[in-house]
Every structure is written in structure tokens, then in C-alpha cells.
Design a protein around this nucleic acid. Structure first.
Lengths: 208, 208
DNA sequence: ACAAAAAAAGGAACGTGTTCCAATTCCGCC
DNA sequence: GGCGGAATTGGAACACGTTCCTTTTTTTGT
């Protein structure tokens, strides 16, 4: 993994790919911008196109639907979180503490832009089959984040039990976020749910 | 042509309330019918109105939005399940077995009408603040179903731990259904997730 | 530097959820 | 039995996601 001059492979392709990447980025940024200002309803495709300085048809060339657009933004956000955590892993001593710490931090970020979170969670909740791939990607990233937090500094592969626990926590996380964004529970409830679940699933006395 | 004696109280009000109740029912039935045939997208408000033999504006008088319509149908469905289980409680010996049994049964029903389930779960996943009340009602019914299954024949009130476990299982259930209806996982995965979670949360060795 | 191909622009048009309104029908009550 | 108000009807109209088409611009290969 040299910091190669000639772009290894995935980037490649001269001007076209560059301008396309830039366009894609502008569209995603416009999406986040609009979502931050007015949530899901403010992310109107015509406005996204205008804000990204791109034609409406172009938005659709890059993202097949509004749902997809928001889901890709969500996937990117989660991937960023994962990357950050790879560099700054939780330092707590126990799995429970690490998981709770990581998820509290994530939720703190999500709460700073509640409308963005709401838009993403809502897209997640309506996802159709044609977006199964990104939904899977998002859930895998979230599960991975939790798995890493569970068996933090250790380099061994996750046990099957850990993977199952991580999946449950991911599901609790998503459900709880859904409860928050649709106004059933306050934002603190997300942390509480996760702490409770982590406690029940990861407490030392439950380790086999 | 009164058939009923003097209706006790909740029904009350003569012809008006009766015809309104009938209208509401027709709308809900039309919704389920259309959902069964073509899922969420087939539940088009104009079609619902036509199938229920009612004007479009009338549908909106009874249900503020398509989302609300489907959520009320979902609440009713869950309430029915709950009522059924009150009469036919699970007979298994352990909490885990009872919970698994109840949820498997519920999922079996849901799988018979996958498009209906998909429409409902999808509405649930997009719920907005104005529908927080039904979303809460649905989650409470689902949690209640699970709580009852956990401490089945016993008549004591649920312990705090049981309530927390039930909530987690409810969240896993919802997330897993979401994964199924958006094509990320097969329908069996719902049962597997719930069995795994119930096992981890309710196994005897975890009882305190 | 030019021709062919690909991408983007610009904008019209369609479908469906939702809103609104005028006209009509129905209900409860005097 | 008729009156006042509420409920219902029927349908027009609007908003926004999505599709489609034509024209223009950009990119690539020679």
C-alpha cells in the first residue's frame, strides 16, 4: 500500500471520473445540507439538483431515487464513524463499557443534526428491495462497529456469540432511533435502551 | 329495525355512529384487501375509497394519511393477536420456549400475507410525529404480548427486568421484520433472530 | 484538431398523496 | 314532518418524486 502516484485502480480514468466524483459529492453534500435545514421533506429532488448545481436528471443518474440518495448518505456517515473508531478505539476496560461508550458517542453526533438523522432513519425504514444492498451495507457497518467495540483491543476474530450479540444491539439501536425520530421517545431513550441491552447481553456473569 | 337492545355505552349513538363505524370498517377492509393484492403501492387512496364505496375525502376524514391508515390497520392486527393470546396462552414450560412459540406463531401469520406485512412495516418505519400515538400503541401491544409470554401463567406483575427484556425483543422483532420486508434477509431470519435473542436474554443461567 | 460517443442540461409531463370546495344527502331534534 | 347542522359526495387542483425527450456540452480516441 504505497501512496501511489499513478492511482492504483479504483480511481483511475482521467477527467471524466474526476468530474463525476465531484458531481456525486456535490449531490450528497446538497442532500445533507437540505436535510440539516428541514429534514426529509426539505430534501426535494429539484432543490438537491439546484443546490448541487446539477440537472435533475443528473441526480437520478447518480442515485436512482430519493430513498437511495439518503441511504447512500447514511452509509457514508456510518463508514466515516467506523473509520474514526478504527483510529480512536474506545479505551474502556470491559466490553459493556466500550460498547456503551461508542454508541453514546455516535448518538451524540446524531443528536446534533436531528433532522438529518430523522431523514436517514426514515429512508432506512421505508427501504424497498431495490435498495437491499445499501441497507445491508449499513447494517453490516453498524454491526461491525459494535463487534469491534465488544472485543476491542484483542485481535482475535469475533466469536459467534459476539456476532449475535452485536446484531441484536444493532437492531435495538435502529429500532430505538426510529422511536426517537418519530417522536415516540426522547433522544435519551436511545442511550438508555442500548445501555440496558448491552448490560443484559454482555455483563460478565453472562459470559460463557 | 333495531337489532340491538340499548347498546351499553361505548357504541351508543344511534344510526350515525353505526354507519360511521361501518364506513371505517369498510375503509380498513379495503386497505387490507388492496395491500394483500399488491402491497404498499397498491394501497392507493383513490382505490381504497372506491373499494370501500366511499368518497376520497371521507377516507381522509377517518384517517389523516395513508401512513395513518396502515398504522391503524397494524394496531388492529396486533390487538387481535394479543386478544387471541389472552385466550390461548402458550403452554410451554420455560419463558424462552413460550416467547419463541408465540413469536413464531405471529410470524407464521405475517408470512401468509407478506405484502400486507410489508406495507405495515414500511408505514411503521416512516412514521412521523403526527402518528407517534399509534406507533406507541403498536409497540406497547407488541411489548405486552412478549411480556405475557415471558411470565405466562403467573399472575404477578412483570419485573423490571422482564419489561426491559420484552422491549428489547420487541425492537429486535421490528428490526428483523424490516430486514425481511426490504429483502435483506429471508423470512426465516426473523424467527432465528428472535430465538437467538430470547435465548441470550432469557436463558435460565441469566436469571438473577 | 476533429468526429463519435457519452454525459449533462433543461424542461415537459405523469402519477399519486393530499387539500379544498360546492353541492348534496343524512341525522337528530323540535 | 320539517329544519339546521354535520357528514358525504364528486371532482378539481396542487406538490413532489419520477420519467422521458431533445439539445448542448464534455470526453475520448485517432
Amino acid at each position: 500500500m504505497v501512496i501511489a502516484e499513478p492511482e492504483p485502480e479504483p480511481a483511475a480514468e482521467g477527467a471524466l471520473a474526476r468530474s463525476q466524483a465531484a458531481r456525486r459529492r456535490r449531490v450528497l453534500d446538497a442532500t445533507l445540507q437540505l436535510a440539516a435545514e428541514g429534514g426529509f421533506d426539505a430534501v426535494q429532488m429539484r432543490d438537491v439538483a439546484a443546490a448541487a448545481d446539477v440537472a435533475l436528471g443528473t441526480v437520478y443518474r447518480y442515485f436512482a431515487s430519493k430513498e437511495r440518495l439518503l441511504l447512500e448518505a447514511m452509509a457514508e456517515q456510518q463508514a466515516d464513524l467506523r473509520a474514526y473508531l478504527d483510529v480512536h478505539p474506545p479505551r474502556e476496560a470491559t466490553p459493556v463499557a466500550r460498547v456503551v461508550s461508542v454508541l453514546r458517542g455516535a448518538n451524540r453526533s446524531l443528536r446534533e443534526y436531528p433532522d438529518v438523522t430523522a431523514a436517514m432513519v426514515r429512508s432506512f425504514g421505508t427501504a424497498q428491495i431495490e435498495n437491499a444492498d445499501i441497507v445491508r451495507r449499513v447494517t453490516e457497518i453498524m454491526t461491525g462497529i459494535i463487534t469491534s467495540a465488544i472485543h476491542a483491543p484483542e485481535r482475535r476474530p469475533a466469536t459467534e456469540r459476539e456476532v449475535r450479540v452485536a446484531r441484536i444491539l444493532m437492531q435495538v439501536w435502529l429500532s430505538s432511533l426510529n422511536g426517537w425520530v418519530c417522536g415516540v421517545d426522547g433522544p435519551d431513550r436511545v442511550d438508555e435502551d442500548l445501555a440496558a441491552a448491552a448490560g443484559l447481553l454482555l455483563s460478565p456473569r453472562n459470559d460463557c
